[in-house]
Amino acid sequence: MKPAPFAYERPATLSEAVRILADVPGAKVLAGGQTLGPMLNLRLAQPEMIVDIGRIPELAEVTETAGAISIGATVTHAAIEDGRVSDPAGGFLRRVAKGIAYRAVRTRGTIGGSLAHADPAADWLSALTALGAEVVLSGSHGSRTVVLAEFARGAMQADIAADEIVVAVRVPKFSRASRFAYHKICRKTGEFAEAIGVAVDDPERGVRRLVAGATEGRPIVLNLERDLISLSVAALEEALSASGYVADAYVLKLHAVALHRACQEASAL
């Protein structure tokens, strides 16, 4: 399949990109094209215009403050995998990046594109939700910041207006004593997840969070009192159900196992 005809713009600045989006109804942002490309080819997306944000320097920046690292939207999975971006979570981002698709996809796919698409099965959404990251957006009405846990409203539905662009994702820095684990259950290497379990434990900052991803909706955040190591698969199934998650027995078990493995892995560190 080949795309339906569309116009193409490649603005050099963020403000120009935002202006085009505001002016042209039906314009769509293109970042790495690893999701949009197939959608265009299958004609599932037939935008009037493609606004390629790949050459906007502001979107590729990585900046560091005392409490956080801000990763520009067009930074690729590969750049993170290769350690070209400093990691606020002690190598955790590198490990997550390595498990996304396969190298060819990672070379082009971007962190901002992944978050904007808000696929529940995507890796960044769950991993960064567990870290308590925030998304920085820019639109014709100015800039705003949204906590990632709220940015994803549901499957493929992000809190993003038609004229807004994800500029960066801001990830808080964690203490050296922190432990992170990420477990992805998928049918084969490079596939999207069937279930994701993330465990984050930073005793110094008092953060202990479990995230279940690749559900049908936004990632499920569990703030549990109990020690990670003591959580059984059955207890996690219960916690998931108590959070309101509804799935058939097999899928529920799969998510509990992913969480369980993440807990075990984090505890073993």
Binding site: K2, P5, R43
Partner: peptide, 8 residues
């Protein structure tokens, strides 16, 4: 002339 146009 092209596959994309043929699909159109």
């Amino acid at each position: 002339p092209t596959r994309a146009e043929a699909e159109d």
